[in-house]
Amino acid sequence: MTRVLLLGGTGDALRIARELRPGDVYSLAGLGKVPDDLPCAVRVGGFGGSEGMARYIEHEGIGLVIDATHPYAAQISANAAQASCSTRVPCWALRRPAWQPQAGDDWRVVNDWSELTDALAPFRRPLFTLGREPLAHLDEIPAHQFWFVRCLDSHPDTTRARILAARGPFTLEGERALFALQGFDVVVSKNSGGSATEAKLEVARDRHLPVVLLRRPQLPAVDREFERVADLLQALHLSD
């Protein structure tokens, strides 16, 4: 049987990991909770770039790499594609479709942190849902702003920011209550796709709030791409 290396850290990846076998490997960066109830092996930590991943693939006898990382984990995806090429081991990728704007949306797409802060200049109470990145900029908060940063990491609040440690999925009712309580006037997000964190967009639409979106990175070409976990699992089972 083909030994699988699954690169994960997302809810979609966890669904795939639950269908793997004892000889397969689920690899995590180690930033969140490490599952202990999977049928496959779990490794935590980096590989040392594409060359390190290639060495791991060869040493462990990996026959298939599955990239089910976050759509913004561009470097990991690039390393997987390069390691796959150098070892001639196939690489499949789960490419979650991006969210698409709907009637009533006010989306403002930016390319980087500099453009993002420029886009936020008119606002006072932004909700950041970018992960940990805003934590590195808490000393740069403009005098007229108070930030709310939602991420996985616990972090002390400051006089100018509140850190909301939380993990999705988030419900529509919960998001409505949070927005009403905190009075956000803009939402900052990655265009992650999927349903786990989409409720904030519906609430922003209902409240006529703008959404500043960080543009998705360009991901490398791989042997096969899938938009749905079910399709990838079917292909995986058929390939055994």
Rank of each mutant, 00 (worst) to 15 (best):
G46C: 02
F146A: 04
L152A: 14
M53L: 15
A221M: 07
D105I: 06
A180G: 11
L38I: 07
R124C: 13
V212W: 00
L164A: 00
E202L: 12
E227V: 03
F148S: 06
P210Q: 14
G174E: 07
E115I: 01
R18S: 12
H237R: 15
V229C: 08
P220L: 05
R132M: 07
R95S: 09
I57T: 06
R21C: 04
G193K: 09
L116V: 01
F47Q: 00
A230N: 10
D139W: 07
P217E: 08
G104A: 13
Q234P: 03
P39Q: 00
T158D: 06
D153S: 14
D185T: 13
L116M: 14
D36G: 15
L6R: 04
D24G: 05
L238I: 13
G9K: 13
R162M: 12
S86A: 07
Q182A: 14
P210T: 15
T197E: 13
H144C: 09
D139R: 07
N191A: 13
H237L: 13
L233A: 10
L20A: 01
V229W: 05
R125V: 14
G63T: 11
S192P: 07
D36K: 11
T69R: 03
F179Q: 06
H137Q: 11
L201K: 04
A74K: 11
D106H: 10
